[in-house]
Design a protein around this nucleic acid. Structure first.
Length: 571
RNA sequence: CGGGGCGUAGCGCAGCCUGGUAGCGCAUCUGGUUUGGGACCAGAGGGUCAGGUGUUCGAAUCACCUCGCCCCGACCA
């Protein structure tokens, strides 16, 4: 490719509304342009990177025994009604009617479609196991699209679905995918971590998320300093530090204006860990749908609402309204667990706690000396607190928990029969009986991965793509305007093309600074500089994006470049 | 959905408070000079000032409404 013909609109200034580096650099380097909220054009350079990421994903999926297919983006509502998700999915599912009034939606995921396909085609256990995948655009109408490709509404995803005759076979495929994902993210040169995850609304049993470690990540993950235990904070369990409260009698204390934990603690001159924090929630979904419940954790802990939702069998819990809070006999700012007209859930670590300070359910009053066992009855204990840095690991009992931010780029699930059963994915087993296929599903956010790579691979000058996904591996940069430099450049360019190197030739009539800056911004791993100075000494300069410089004669430069690229692939 | 901020040329911004018919840098185009780190000179093109309604002799500027975008919140009662 000649740079003079390349559609690569780079920007000198950072667009004001791009906040994270990946968004800024992908815009500045001319990889993407915004069309509307959460929806982007992939310009030629961006598409090249996207295709390279896809290529690696495909190679590894194929190697692992997957078969690629392609399903539609538009899906009929009937499928979703059959699986039960038409009601459950919520506003992220973009629904619409066609000209005949037929209800449809844009696919945010494809369990329904693949199950429909399999229900019609699967007959015998001899066809199993099977792993089918696609690389396709998904649409999710996110509440808050942000950070460019990181959280878009339309995005590219690799989604795979496996079908099995029994759970042992599913477990084996889950392990196979677990390893495949490790290979994929290794090949992309990423620092990442697989963590145990909550299954969320998708259902099923085992589940791992794959997180690229980055401070801009939207997820909090935690891992043990000693053993392999790592989990999303939505699910992580750990042992908190022990707190010794002193047993004393229940007393009311005046806290006229203090509602927040910190303020009450400051007023009474105690640590926040001496307080019991009571939050009132409204339950959505499940058998407790519509109920109001109270949930208590230690003042120094955070309530993990996903855990509460799980304990309640709910899809979601949301903070209760002022009316709901009043209806159970308490008041905002002074809530406590005593004498509430609703179920009370208490974090399991507080089972034997004594000497706590809690809201008195009256304005301006708290109580001190609260003893959980003595003063409360009919409460339900459950793991509700969020793991904190410094907690003890429950797996090895030695290490301490550490926290990191992560970008979720992959997620694998053992779904079981959550979808295959309602969607009638049946087959005849070896005994001639009808059985429900058991299922796994495995996703990778391909476009998000592209952003995640930039988050890890950049410097002040721009993007530093790993060689195997860079938009071009090498750039031949012509300096000056002499006939000899131009002719020599063209020869080097042609030789590299012949050798199969993905190369761009910067033949523009631009000053050297502009060419260097663009090559760095775009992140081309190897630059071959062809100017009169180098030609006069027959010593052309080869410069990597990471600053290493070597020289080669015009005759050797092509081979030298290939060697350097090969070295970079290894590193 | 709640709070805050913003919307003026492709990008970054000034002008608004105190109304008088739109400007700067970069980018773009033409001509010339320049070519080992975002060159220089001269000239040029490009704007429904987000949209609507109103106030006014006159609105980018003031008021009201709508739309769009960004940030924060929607767990510490």
């Amino acid at each position: 490719m000649r740079y003079s013909k390349l559609f690569s609109p780079t920007l000198r200034d950072t667009p004001a509304d791009a906040e994270v580096v990946s968004h800024q650099l992908l815009l500045r380097a001319g990889f993407i342009r915004r069309v509307t909220s959460g929806i982007y054009d992939y310009l030629p350079l961006g598409l090249r990177v996207l295709r390279n990421v896809e290529r690696i994903v495909r190679e590894e999926m194929n190697r692992a025994g997957g078969q690629e297919l392609l399903m539609p983006m538009v899906q009929p509502s009937e499928f979703w009604q059959k699986s039960g998700r038409w009601e459950k999915y919520g506003p992220e599912l973009l629904r619409f009617k066609d000209r005949h009034g037929h209800e449809s939606c844009l696919g945010p995921t494809h369990e329904e479609v693949i199950c429909d396909l399999m229900s019609r085609e699967l007959r015998s256990y001899k066809q199993l196991p099977m792993n089918l995948y696609q690389v396709q655009n998904k649409f999710r109408d996110e509440i808050r699209p942000r950070f460019g490709l990181m959280r878009g509404r339309e995005f590219v995803m690799k989604d795979a679905y496996s079908f099995h005759a029994n759970d042992e076979c599913l477990a084996a495929e889950y392990q196979n995918m677990f390893e495949t994902y490790h290979r994929i993210f290794h090949r992309l040169g990423l620092k990442f971590r697989a963590v145990e995850a909550d299954n969320g609304s998708i259902g099923g049993s085992a589940s791992h998320e794959f997180h690229v470690l980055a401070d801009s990540g939207e997820d909090l993950i935690t891992h043990c300093s000693h053993c392999e235990y790592a989990a999303n904070v939505e699910k992580a369990v750990s042992k908190p530090q022990t707190y010794q409260g002193s047993d004393s009698s229940l007393t009311e204390v005046d806290t006229p204006y203090q509602t927040a934990v910190e303020d009450v603690a400051a007023l009474l001159k105690v640590a926040t860990s001496s307080l019991l924090k009571t939050l009132i929630f409204h339950v959505d979904g499940g058998e407790n749908d519509g109920q109001v419940v109270a949930a208590c954790v230690r003042g120094s802990d955070q309530l993990q609402d996903i855990k509460l939702a799980r304990a309640l069998g709910a899809t979601e819990v949301v903070l209760a309204s002022a009316e709901e809070i009043a209806s159970i006999g308490t008041i905002t700012g002074f809530s406590g667990p005593m004498d509430l007209n609703c179920p009370v859930y208490i974090d399991a670590s507080l089972h034997d706690a004594v000497g706590l300070i809690a809201g008195a359910n009256k304005k301006g009053l708290h109580v001190s000396g609260l003893n959980i066992q003595r003063d409360l009855n009919n409460v339900i204990f459950a793991d509700l607190r969020q793991t904190q840095a410094g907690d003890t690991c429950v797996k090895c009992n030695i290490g301490l928990m550490e926290m990191s931010r992560g970008i979720e780029v992959g997620h694998i699930f053992e779904l079981g029969t959550t979808y295959s059963k309602p969607m009638d994915v049946l087959f005849q087993d070896e005994h001639g009986k009808r059985a429900v296929a058991t299922m796994g599903c495995y996703g990778i956010g391909v476009s998000r991965l592209m952003a995640a790579v930039v988050e890890q691979c950049h410097d002040d000058a721009g993007i530093t793509w790993p060689v195997n996904i860079a938009p071009f591996q090498a750039s031949v940069i012509t300096l000056g305007k002499s006939e000899t430099a131009f002719a020599a450049s063209e020869k080097v360019y042609q030789d590299l093309l012949q050798a199969g190197v993905d190369v761009v030739w910067d033949d523009r009539k631009e000053s050297p600074g502009v060419k260097f800056k663009d090559a760095e911004l775009i992140g081309i791993p190897l630059r071959i500089i062809v100017g009169d100075r180098g030609l006069d000494n027959d010593a052309l300069e080869l410069k990597t994006r990471w600053g290493a410089v070597e020289e080669a004669s015009l005759a050797d430069v092509c081979q030298k470049a290939q060697h350097m690229l090969a070295d970079m692939q290894q590193g």
